[in-house]
Amino acid sequence: MFRKLYGDNPLHLFAQIITLALAGYAAGRVPLESAVWPKMLVWFVGAALGHDLVLYPLYAIADSAAHFRLFRRARPLPHVAGVPWINYLRVPVGLSLLLLLVWWPLISNDAPGTFFAATGLTTDVYLPRWLGITGVFVLVSAVLYAVAVRRAAAAARVAADNPGRVTTP
């Protein structure tokens, strides 16, 4: 009966009530602290929408674009010696963009004034550092890819020279 009316078990309702009570109480205290609580609400909802409707689509589209449209090809690029390249691109670029996302205020030199007031220093060192570590990521990935291609090519030659042998990739 309860399930039919509510749509789930009583524990589920209990959990929702706990959430609403605690979050509701906390949210209810905010106007007592600060008149700008509507701005906090905007940032709160904006954070969720910003991820779900901006950040996620951006990286998902970028990923499939890299996969399917790179160099204007309709199909994925052929794998050199059978080694898929996509993750050798995804990993360094992903790590680099993640660092950019987390350290955006420093790397983009977004708030040099408050930064200088606090630390007495400037933020102009972080962009070169980010470019440098991005270069390291790309370089390491390229070397690993080259090694993987070389190995696969060697394995393919061995297989061609010994047609009787069964090899596992």
């Binding site: 609403l20 605690l22 600060s34 420093l106």
Partner: peptide, 28 residues
């Protein structure tokens, strides 16, 4: 990162935001 983009006090926002999150976290 000392970048006060948000138009409110950090302590107020981070404290009450945390309790809203804790509510959601416990229920989830």
């Amino acid at each position: 990162q000392l970048d006060y983009l948000f138009p409110f006090f950090f302590y107020t926002a981070h404290f009450y935001g945390a309790w809203v999150f804790i509510g959601g976290f416990v229920g989830h």
